[in-house]
């Protein structure tokens, strides 16, 4: 096996392992937001590793560019969905207050509510 093959194998192994660990985390963590933290892991590092492994094992520069685009697209889109899900989870009360050390958003929202003219939420 060549160096490139070893590199590809290690990348694939780590990427798949990250997926598995993230799945275990998503099963074990107690609330929505901590499950989201587990979910971002394979989406970012796992994807980078798997794509690096694929690029190394296919070994064509043309496809390497395409795989770079895959990672870039994921980097642009993953935060969008993470933010939307986190925000609506927060707004519909899926956050477990007992697990938070401090919650400055609720403090600020309460303060905004108690002032006479509330600022627009958007």
């Amino acid at each position: 096996m060549s160096v490139l093959d070893w590199f590809a194998s290690i990348c694939f192994f780590l990427g798949c392992a990250l997926n598995l660990i993230a799945a275990i985390g998503a099963l074990r963590f107690p609330d929505l937001l901590s499950r989201m933290h587990a979910a971002t892991k394979p989406q970012v590092l796992g994807l980078m590793l798997v794509m690096a492994g694929l690029a190394a094992s296919l070994g064509s520069s043309q496809l390497t560019w395409k795989l770079t685009i895959v990672v870039l697209f994921q980097f642009m889109t993953a935060p969008v969905s993470a933010h939307m899900v986190g925000r609506s989870g927060y707004r519909t009360g899926k956050v477990r207050e007992d697990l938070l050390v401090i919650d400055e958003l609720t403090e600020d929202l309460d303060r905004a509510k108690s002032t006479p003219i509330p600022p627009s939420s958007s």
Binding site: L33, M36, H37, A38, T40, K41, V44, L45, F75, M76, A78, P79, A82, H83, G86, R87, Y90, L105
Partner: peptide
């Protein structure tokens, strides 16, 4: 900044 912060596992932007 928000994108980079939420791409790193361990921090999620809940509200901006």
């Amino acid at each position: 900044t928000a994108q980079l912060c939420s791409l790193v596992p361990g921090s999620i932007i809940v509200e901006a």
